[in-house]
Amino acid sequence: MAILPEAWFVNFIILSVLLILLLAYLLATARRLRDVGYSGWFTFLSFILYCVGLIILLFLVDYRMKLATQLVVNKKRHSA
Rank of each mutant, 00 (worst) to 15 (best):
I20V: 12
F47G: 07
G37C: 04
V17A: 09
F9L: 14
V10T: 08
D35N: 09
F9R: 09
L22F: 11
L45K: 06
T43L: 00
I3E: 01
L21H: 06
I20T: 08
L22T: 13
Y25P: 02
P5C: 03
S39G: 13
A30T: 02
L45G: 15
L21G: 08
G53D: 04
V36E: 03
L54F: 08
L19Y: 07
S46A: 15
W8R: 07
I20L: 09
L33H: 02
F47S: 09
R32D: 11
S39W: 03
V10F: 06
V52P: 01
W8G: 07
V10R: 03
Y50L: 15
F44S: 06
V10M: 04
I13G: 11
S46T: 14
Y25S: 14
I14L: 07
L26M: 11
I20D: 02
L33V: 04
L21C: 14
A24W: 02
A28K: 12
L19S: 06
W41C: 04
L54A: 14
L45Y: 12
A28C: 11
L33N: 03
S16N: 05
A7W: 10
Y25I: 14
W41F: 15
A7Q: 10
L27P: 00
R31A: 10
D35F: 10
Y38R: 14
D35P: 00
L45M: 13
Y50M: 15
L4I: 10
L23F: 09
I48E: 08
A30N: 00
S46I: 14
D35W: 10
T29N: 11
L22A: 13
G37L: 01
N11A: 06
L19G: 06
C51K: 10
L45V: 15
L49I: 15
T29V: 12
A30F: 00
L23I: 11
I48H: 05
L27I: 14
A30R: 03
A24Y: 12
L45E: 09
I20P: 01
L22M: 12
R32M: 14
L22H: 07
W8Y: 07
T43P: 00
I48V: 15
L15S: 07
W41G: 12
L54V: 13
L22D: 11
I14H: 03
R34M: 06
G37E: 02
Y38I: 10
D35I: 03
I3Y: 00
R32P: 00
G53T: 05
